[in-house]
Design a protein around this nucleic acid. Structure first.
Length: 475
RNA sequence: GGAGCAUUCGUCUAGUGGUUAGGACACCGGCCUCUCACGCCGGCAGCAGGGGUUCGACUCCCCUAUGCUCUACCA
């Protein structure tokens, strides 16, 4: 049974890099009829942020990556929040202590800082010097009984080579002599990531650990822990990182990183997912657009690349536009409805027509307002080029003719509109661009926009007349 | 400082000894067209450098360079 997990720490919002990790874990699990588990790694009480868990769950839900088990929906392997599993970690820390694969360490923060400072100064590799490693059990117990503050450290064996068999990277080997005696239990009684992660992955029967590349260097310590506890280690897959434009690790400083930022800006979840899926993975074909189903079917960890990928907004924009254009009108309208800020009261029917007209030009859902300004603003600002056009007497002639004809009619639709234009053409002899542009500018104040006969139809007779008259007044 | 990982067009990538190095975004040009957008067609642009191995290297090996990650009582 394939069981993957997404294990964020609740320090704020869900990061797009985290979403990609969750996506890969999800795709891999679903493809193998397995489960995705959400586990909250909140063993650092100081970094805990109120409401972060809810935000993460909500973001995953929005993206359609619903975990099969997690703090919000339970499961047979709970609890799914590490701070609720403290006794478990304690139990296994004691076991490690018992087997002499861990030891209590009484070194103070001050001593450690000083040690580190000296090591840095001498240009030596920083790390714990093993002072408490050889303490006798008796002495340790005495000091503990005396109430001295201590941590529990992993006793890394000397002179061993640990081989990490990574699905994406192949065999990676590490010398244990270069590994630090990692802290397993902190003095506050909470475990560190190193212990909690191993205990939980084992107890939750995780088969594949899919996580970011930053964890690769700590994997040998993980493997040792599995060995010392007598457990079988899961399979590992370390994903390449997501990068800023300058190729540094994707960060807040250089743009949006929260999933909710992208949602708020009007990116569609399917587009974001599609884009993220392709950032680091590629099935080897030329296909760019993938449905969720196809993603589940085609995804494979073996085809995930090894090098970091720049998060390229331009391509996301393009892809989002594709998804917007592929949507049917009712669905698009639902997505866009709440984002419309109109000064003019349109009926739902009319708004739908407007959205339909604008659909092909949208990149993000939010673009609806800038693209639809001619429908939503009461007083239109004249564009520079438009102003220039209004100076010409041909434009004035066209508008006057058009107004005359239009005011005699009861209503306007696109066919009538075209007919009027043709009549004006006959009477004035003005045609082509000169004719149509004059009308466009008269109605919208802009030299570009959606097809003018459709625009005019939605705007209706009165608005068109009003605007043309106003334009003439400004001419 | 050390360890690990990485390195194909500006960006995302295909490519596993013999290819005119393929696709996509962006960019440029054309078509469509009242304009914009969409769409279609075309173009520009890349194997980090140096040594090997080989009849032949983007592909295999070594070195260098560069970038990134880790090196916390953070995950």
């Amino acid at each position: 049974m394939v069981r993957t997990r997404f294990a964020p720490s609740p320090t704020g919002y869900l990061h797009v890099g985290g979403l990609r990790t969750a996506l890969y874990a999800y795709l891999f699990a679903k493809q193998n009829q397995g489960q995705l588990i959400l586990r909250i790694e909140d063993t650092d009480q100081e970094r805990r942020v109120e409401g972060a868990i809810e935000k993460i769950i909500e973001a995953l839900k929005w993206a359609g990556l619903e975990p099969d088990e997690g703090p919000h929906k339970g499961g047979d392997y709970g609890p799914y929040i590490q701070s609720e599993r403290i006794e478990l970690y304690k139990k296994y820390a004691d076991e490690l202590l018992e087997r002499d694969h861990a030891y209590p360490c009484f070194c103070t923060k001050e001593r450690l800082d000083e040690l580190n400072r000296i090591q840095k100064m001498q240009n030596k590799p920083p790390g714990y010097d093993g002072k408490c490693r050889s303490l006798s059990r008796e002495e340790a117990e005495q000091r503990i009984a005396a109430g001295e503050s201590y941590v529990i450290r992993q006793k890394i064996p000397e002179n061993r080579e640990i081989i990490v068999n990574d699905i994406i990277r192949g065999q990676v080997s590490f010398e244990t002599d270069l590994l630090d005696d990692q802290i397993l239990m902190k003095s506050d009684g909470f475990p560190t990531y190193h212990l909690a992660n191993i205990v939980d992955d084992h107890l939750m029967e995780i088969s594949h650990v899919i996580r970011g590349e930053e964890w690769l260097p700590s994997t040998p310590k993980n493997i040792l822990l599995y060995e010392f506890l007598g457990w079988e280690a899961p399979k590992f897959a370390h994903l390449p990182l997501l990068l800023n434009r300058d190729r540094s690790k994707l960060s807040k400083r250089q743009g949006d990183v929260a999933v909710s930022d992208y949602r708020d800006k009007g990116y569609l979840k399917d587009a974001l997912i599609n884009f993220l899926a392709l950032l680091g993975w590629n099935p080897g074909t030329n296909q760019e657009i993938f449905s969720r189903k196809e993603l589940i079917r085609e995804f494979s960890l073996e085809k995930v690349g090894k090098s970091g990928s720049v998060f390229d907004l331009e391509k996301l924009d393009w892809m989002n536009g594709i998804y917007i254009r592929e949507m049917d009108l009712d669905e698009l309208y639902q997505h866009v409805e709440d984002r419309i800020a109109s000064e003019i009261d349109w009926s739902e029917e009319e708004l739908k027509q407007i959205v339909g007209l604008l659909q092909e030009s949208l990149t993000k859902l939010n673009d609806i307002n800038s693209k639809g300004i001619i429908f939503f603003k009461e007083n239109l600002q004249l564009e520079k080029d438009a102003e220039k056009m209004l100076q010409s007497k041909e434009t004035v002639k066209v508008l006057k003719g058009f107004i005359d004809k239009l005011s005699e009619l009861d209503a306007l639709d696109r066919n009538i509109f075209v007919n009027i234009a043709r009549q004006v053409q006959k009477e004035t002899g003005i045609k082509g661009k000169q004719l149509w542009m004059s009308i466009r500018v008269g109605i919208t104040g802009q030299t570009h926009g959606p097809e003018i006969h459709k625009t005019a139809e939605i705007l209706g007779k009165e608005k068109c007349l009003e605007r043309m008259q106003e334009a003439l007044a400004n001419a």
